[in-house]
C-alpha cells in the first residue's frame, strides 16, 4: 500500500530531515512510527499525503508514484488518505456534523446522502448525540474522535495519524487508540506517529523507529514491546 525507496528529504541549508528511508507497508497493516521529537516522523507522513515532496527517492502510495505526481492530481490522491493531527484542525464555528461533512462537500456528495454518511460515522466514533455541538464544547478526546470521523467519512484506504493522542490524558488516549485499532480491523491501513512508548507496549503492533532522519529499526509488535519492557 505504501512503499518508500531510498527516500531523502532536506531543506536548503539544513541537514537532511530524512535519509535513505526504505519502508513497505502492506494493505490493512497497522504501523507505529516512533522516535524522539525531530526524528522526522511528521515529515515522513507529510510525504505520504503529498504535503511535502521528497528531495530524492520514490514513494508509491496505492501503486502511484507520488514523488512524480502532478500538482493537480494531489487532491484526488488525498481523497484516499485520511489524516488525523494532534491539534485536531477542526473549524470552531461549524458544528460537529458540518466538520465531518466538510470532507464530503469536497467530493460533491449530495446533502441528504452526506448527512446519512456523517451520522453513520459519528455513530461509529460514539458521537451521534453531539452532531449539533460546536467543537469547542467537546472534550479533547471527543474532538479527536470528530477528526477521526472526518478522516474516515469518505472511506479512505489509508489513515495517517500524527501524534493523535499527544494532547489527551491516558484514559482518552486509550479510547482513541481503541478506535484506530477498530478502524484497522475494518480493513483500513493505519500509520500512527507517536513518541509514547506505553502505546507501543500496550498495542504491540509493527513499530518503525526513526532517529535523526534515519530508519533505525523495523520490528514486529511483540519484539518491540519486549525490547521496550527491558528498557
Amino acid at each position: 500500500m505504501i512503499q518508500m525507496f531510498h527516500v531523502y528529504k532536506a531543506y536548503p541549508g539544513d541537514p537532511p530531515v530524512l535519509s535513505d528511508i526504505n519502508l513497505h507497508v502492506e494493505k490493512g497493516e497497522f504501523v507505529f512510527l516512533t522516535g524522539p521529537s525531530g526524528a522526522g516522523k511528521t515529515t515522513l507522513l507529510k510525504l505520504v499525503f503529498c504535503a511535502e515532496k521528497a528531495t530524492k527517492g520514490q514513494i508509491l502510495v496505492g501503486g502511484r508514484n507520488v514523488a512524480r505526481i502532478r500538482e493537480s492530481a494531489v487532491p484526488y490522491l488525498r481523497r484516499n488518505i485520511g489524516v488525523v493531527f494532534q491539534d485536531f484542525k477542526l473549524l470552531p464555528h461549524r458544528t460537529v456534523e458540518d466538520n465531518v461533512a466538510f470532507a464530503l462537500d469536497v467530493l460533491g456528495v449530495p446533502r441528504a446522502e452526506a448527512r446519512e454518511r456523517v451520522h453513520r460515522m459519528l455513530k461509529l466514533v460514539g458521537l451521534q448525540h453531539k452532531a449539533g455541538s460546536l467543537p469547542l464544547r467537546l472534550s479533547g478526546g471527543e474532538q479527536q474522535r470528530v477528526v477521526i470521523a472526518r478522516a474516515l467519512v469518505n472511506d479512505p484506504t489509508i489513515l495517517l495519524a500524527d501524534e493523535p493522542t499527544g494532547n489527551l490524558d491516558p484514559a482518552l488516549t486509550v479510547e482513541i487508540m481503541d478506535l484506530l485499532m477498530d478502524v484497522n480491523v475494518r480493513g483500513t491501513t493505519v500509520m500512527v506517529a507517536t513518541h509514547d512508548n506505553t502505546l507501543l507496549q500496550r498495542y504491540q503492533k509493527r513499530t518503525v523507529r526513526l532517529e535523526r532522519g534515519m530508519l533505525v529499526s523495523d520490528e514486529d509488535g511483540v519484539k518491540a514491546a519486549r525490547r521496550l519492557a527491558l528498557g
Partner: peptide, 16 residues
Amino acid sequence: REEIEIQKLVGATDRF
C-alpha cells in the same frame, strides 16, 4: 485560511 488548509487536506482541488 484554516478552512482552506483543511479543505486541501481532505482533497479539495484549487478550483473548489
